[in-house]
Amino acid sequence: MIEYYRKLKENEKFFDNAHEIAKEIKEKAKRIFDDCDVFIVGSFARKKHTLSSDLDILIVSSKVPEKINFAEYCSIVRSLTEDSRINIHLINREKFGEMRKYYEPMIEI
């Protein structure tokens, strides 16, 4: 039980730094995608996250293939973060136009 509460305290600090974490990922994403926009989405953006939630980061770029294979996705995610609490979403700009409503609300980084 002590370990559980320690982990929750660690996650509290993690979410307190969510914007800074997202900024770091944006800098790395710009090196890969050049023209990308980055947003925090999901429960954190909806202000409904818990200390056991993940942090959803959406990266939108015309350089993201419309269909991306799993190995390529994993490679990109590993280059952006090794933190399993961060869930990276990659979407092509054209597809984003169709899917934007599913990601709202969004916090632009």
Rank of each mutant, 00 (worst) to 15 (best):
I2K: 15
I2L: 15
R6W: 15
L8Y: 06
L8F: 05
N11K: 11
N11S: 07
K13G: 10
F15I: 05
N17H: 12
A18P: 08
H19K: 12
H19P: 10
E20K: 13
E20C: 05
I21P: 01
K26E: 14
K28V: 06
K28G: 09
K30F: 07
R31W: 07
R31A: 15
R31D: 15
I32G: 05
C36A: 08
C36I: 01
F39K: 00
F39L: 02
G42S: 06
F44G: 05
F44I: 01
A45Q: 02
K47S: 06
K48P: 06
T50C: 06
L51C: 01
S52K: 07
S52G: 06
D56K: 01
I57H: 08
V60L: 06
P65H: 05
E66I: 09
K67I: 04
K67S: 06
K67G: 03
K67M: 06
N69S: 12
F70K: 15
E72R: 11
E72T: 14
Y73S: 05
S75E: 12
S75L: 09
I76D: 02
V77Y: 04
R78I: 07
S79G: 07
L80M: 11
L80V: 03
L80K: 11
E82F: 11
E82I: 12
D83Y: 09
I88F: 08
L90N: 03
L90M: 03
I91S: 01
N92D: 08
R93C: 03
E94S: 08
E94P: 06
K95T: 13
F96G: 04
E98P: 13
E98H: 12
E98A: 11
K101E: 11
Y103G: 00
M106E: 01
E108I: 00
E108C: 00
E108S: 03
